[in-house]
């Protein structure tokens, strides 16, 4: 097997009763790549990330991460192996300062291992992580109560929760959704920096314009099936994708 492949998903399927949420999806992901996962509402994007990260039991198929078959692993063990994920709905410790939210992930076995005994005071490390990610207009954000933070900062906090584990791959479940244009504009460089740091990203998104700007390749789901996989700029030339998104009419996606 190619060493450069970090994640290999094969024939993944999941049905909830009579509804097939994910049907026979396969893909490979190379180390350091950013892959977008798009599709209309209910096409199985979130279920796919739940299946990969072990939060839902798979009906069939396998997931190989870093050469290890993690198909039957419990969710915490997958995270421990370095495959982190964000959640669409974040529930931070509302009554605590933002940086305190990073203390539990820093408490995890993986964080202790990757720090190689240099972890020290977890609160200080948490503040470091938050400051490194940066809250551009407001340096006091790490000290504010998490319950008072706007959505854009909460999304970053959620991302920081993953970064605390020093993961190799992060599955970002709609980190752009619900954000204003300027907030997204400030998130894009952050994503690019994560890639430079050697982190592979899977981005489940609805915001196509920003996604296409940073993603190396895109996977399109519809009704749980993979209908296309390819480079960002080519994906809307595929007939099936046009069909799923626009009902088959000719379309043009701005590449700016």
């Amino acid at each position: 097997m190619n060493d450069n492949i970090i994640l290999q998903v094969k024939n993944l399927s999941k049905a909830f009763g009579g509804v097939t949420a994910v049907n026979d999806v396969s893909f490979d992901l190379a180390r350091g790549e950013i892959m977008g996962v798009i599709g209309p509402n209910g096409s199985g994007k979130t279920t796919l990330s739940n299946l990969i990260t072990g939060f839902i039991k798979k009906d069939a198929g396998s997931v190989v991460f870093n050469g290890k078959d993690i198909s039957r692993w419990p969710a915490y063990k997958i995270a421990d192996a370095g495959l982190a994920r964000t959640f669409q709905v974040m529930r931070p410790y509302a009554t605590l300062a933002a940086y305190k939210n990073l203390v539990p992930p820093l408490f995890s076995p993986r964080a202790r291992r990757t720090a190689r005994g240099k972890l020290g005071d977890r609160s200080a490390v948490a503040i470091d992580i938050l400051e490194e990610v940066g809250f551009e207009r407001d340096a006091r954000v790490p000290y504010k109560l998490a319950g008072t933070l706007p959505l854009g900062y909460l999304k970053r906090l959620e991302l920081c929760r993953c970064l605390a584990l020093r993961p190799e791959l992060i599955i970002c479940d709609e980190v752009f959704s619900g954000l204003s244009m300027s907030e997204i504009a400030s998130m894009v460089p952050l994503m690019e920096r994560l890639r430079r740091d050697g982190i592979t990203l899977i981005m489940v998104e609805h915001r196509l314009r920003e996604l296409f700007r940073i993603a190396d390749k895109v996977l399109v789901l519809n009704f749980g099936e993979k209908i296309a996989e390819g480079l960002s700029q080519d994906i809307f030339k595929v007939e099936k994708v046009k069909q799923a998104y626009f009902g088959g009419e000719d379309c043009y996606v701005s590449s700016e």
Binding site: F55, P74, A75, K77, D80, M90, P104, S108, L165
Partner: peptide, 8 residues
């Protein structure tokens, strides 16, 4: 979130 942090 705790599970996703790799904690059992």
């Amino acid at each position: 979130a705790i599970i996703a942090s790799g904690i059992n």
